[in-house]
Design a protein around this nucleic acid. Structure first.
Length: 593
DNA sequence: TAACTAACACGGACAACTTGAAAT
DNA sequence: ATTTCAAGTTGTCCGTGTTAGTTA
């Protein structure tokens, strides 16, 4: 694979291949040359010569949905078609796009334009043609992409997300996970993530906040692409369930560029992940036809992060510990949760109130029939493909079975009969946004049916072993224990349970209320959990007292908080059913122009 | 001094192995 | 007595954040 400095600029229009020419897209397993070619095409030296600038509005005015139209792109000459393909759903110019905001659009001919009309970005319509590219029978369909674990991303984003990079590579947490709609069912697509510099600055954590510190080193070489291992695949496949990038690893080791799982970044630089969807032929070759409608790019500002070799902001550290199941051993209250009397388990985790609903005697919250239907089904295993596909709609921290069930909600009717998973170990997936009602340390609960949402794409039903964790087929024997009835999860719903400033809380309540209009059934059937949530809230203050202080002594208050409006109203356009609508209320939703 | 690295401990998943009971 | 199967135990691997030492 070529480093971005070697051959990473996209050809100019004059050297562009003719319409008849085909080019191999970056697919997993492709030989190095093909992959290198593809990568170079899509990266266009992003790490070196172009930046994505986050909305320049002051913190606090950042509205994530819809996004403020203040973004822009910095780039240098020689950028590729993707310079125009940034999907600035969140960062449109105040009065629409000008060519100044989309320099690449003029720079390159149609063959290098963003397939959906470059920077044009009509707001969230679900109509047909956009930007002068009407949908055709086969191609040109406008995709919609949802950031599935958006609530979690927002949590981190408020404190400026940090991602550890190590020599051997570190997975992202939260990881990128999307839902897609609007693809041609039979057409083939490559799906990949690219990580580009978000701004031209070098950053430093000083005085409890991130401050710029000189210019970024934009000559950093190395792989900036991660192709989803299931690429290429059909639109039906991509839309079937959540597309997660849990195996994506971040590294600062330039020598790791040859590792397709690695994205090479530079510490203390701010990055912006982007999702690319490229229509290809069945064998993964991209048709470089005259139309530029085959490439779609999506950018979610809440995915921005600063690469670090060690966490700087302890708020971020705490969030990671609280939400990443792999860091469970660092949770302060982990041991105590084993020993407290049953009744005392109503006290939520000191560090995560949103998790508190898991630590309730399960029998108190029996699953409602609605959710039994919703979360149980008998989908055959061949629903699942290989890696990284079993993350559910919310990408929340639930058990594999939970995620399994939830993932199926998109296309599985609620009438499907439940099939009892023969394995359920909730202990490792009791993270955020779950509906699990078990206390910490309760293992191997026998569950016939329950909502499934895991932050882990790994699923016992996914023998291919994708997502987080390579082992997928082994089924640990389970000892029946507690009579447990899981609380159905509204797919990332507990954002409203998060400890947020009152203003934000009010906004989120409103959002939830809006979403709830589509899901009254859910709310009605979960009054008990709501009561619990209140308890969570009340105990959060206690929890905060135990929360560690930031290195600088600055806690939430002093940290550079990025307030994000969570206007989910647009999600109501998508209301296949109540559950889906509810889930979408927690997805950041972009439609390609 | 700040940033980086490697070792470490932790929890969880998994595979291999052991044990014991039931069936033949 | 042998076989079969389920359940339990143990070790390995992986992904975490922490920490102390190293490097620039």
């Amino acid at each position: 694979m070529l480093g971005e400095g070697e051959n990473n600029t996209f050809p100019s229009p004059k050297d562009a291949p003719g319409p008849e020419e085909k080019r191999k897209s970056p697919v997993v397993g492709a030989d190095d040359s093909a992959l290198a070619s593809s990568v170079s095409r899509y990266t266009d030296g992003l790490g070196s010569d172009r930046y994505y600038l986050s909305p320049s509005k002051p913190a606090g005015d950042c509205s994530l949905f819809p996004y403020p139209q203040t973004g822009t792109v910095y780039k240098t000459p020689g950028v590729s078609r993707y310079s125009t393909s940034l999907h600035f759903g969140s960062v449109l110019p105040p009065t629409g796009f000008s060519t100044a905001m989309c320099p690449g659009r003029n720079q390159f001919g149609p063959a290098y334009q963003f397939g959906q009309g470059g920077c044009l970005y009509p707001p969230y319509s679900n109509g047909s043609g956009i930007g002068g590219v009407p949908p055709s029978s086969g191609t040109g369909l406008r995709a919609h992409v949802y950031l599935c674990n958006r609530p979690l991303w927002l949590k981190f984003h408020r404190h400026q997300t940090e991602m550890i990079i190590t020599k051997q590579g570190r997975r992202m947490f939260p990881f990128l996970s999307f839902n897609m709609t609007g693809l041609n069912l039979s057409a083939h697509y490559n799906v990949f993530v690219e990580v580009v510099l978000a701004d031209p600055n070098h950053w430093r954590f000083q005085g409890g906040k991130w401050v710029t510190c000189g210019k970024a080193d934009n000559n950093m070489q190395g792989n900036k692409m991660y192709v989803h291992p299931e690429s290429p695949n059909t639109g039906a496949h991509w839309m079937r369930q959540e597309i997660s990038f849990g195996k994506l690893k971040l590294t600062n080791n330039k020598g790791a560029s040859s590792n397709a799982q690695m994205i090479v970044l530079q510490s203390l630089h701010k990055y912006q992940p982007r999702l690319h969807i490229v229509e290809v032929t069945e064998d993964g070759v991209e048709d470089m036809g005259p139309t530029d409608s085959k490439t779609q790019t999506f950018t979610f500002p809440e995915n921005q992060f600063i690469a670090v070799t060690a966490y700087q902001n302890t708020d971020i550290t705490q969030l990671k510990i609280d939400h990443n199941p792999f860091a469970k051993g660092f949770r302060d209250n982990y041991d105590s949760m084993y020993t407290v009397p049953e009744g005392d388990r109503l006290t939520p985790s000191p560090t995560d109130s949103s998790r508190a609903h898991q630590i309730v005697p399960g029998a108190r919250y029996a699953m409602q029939p609605f959710f039994q239907d919703q979360f149980t089904n008998g989908l055959p295993q061949n629903r699942f493909y290989n890696s990284e596909r079993t993350v559910p709609q919310t990408n929340s921290l639930l058990s594999p079975q939970q995620e399994e069930s939830a993932s199926q909600r998109w296309f599985v009717s609620m009438q499907q009969a439940g099939v009892a998973p023969n394995k359920l170990d909730m202990s490792s997936y009791e993270g955020d946004y779950t509906s699990s009602l078990i206390p910490y340390g309760i293992k191997s609960l026998p569950v016939q049916t329950h909502p499934g949402l895991s932050y882990y794409p790994e699923s016992p039903f996914c023998p291919m072993g994708g997502g987080w964790g390579p082992r997928g087929s082994y089924q640990r024997k389970v000892t029946p224990s507690l009579p447990w009835s899981p609380k159905p999860s509204p797919l990332g719903f507990p954002e409203d349970q998060l400890p947020v400033p009152s203003k934000e809380k009010a906004q989120e309540d409103e959002i939830n209320s809006s979403a709830g209009s589509l899901t009254s059934l859910w709310t009605n059937s979960n009054s008990s959990s709501l009561t619990l949530d209140k308890a969570d809230s009340e105990s959060y203050s206690t929890a905060c007292k135990r929360r560690r202080a930031s290195l600088s002594g600055a806690g939430n208050e002093s940290s550079p908080t990025i307030k994000c409006e969570e206007d989910m109203s647009a999600t109501t356009i998508y209301s296949k059913d109540a559950s889906a609508a509810k889930s979408l209320a927690y997805c950041s939703f972009y439609t390609s122009p």
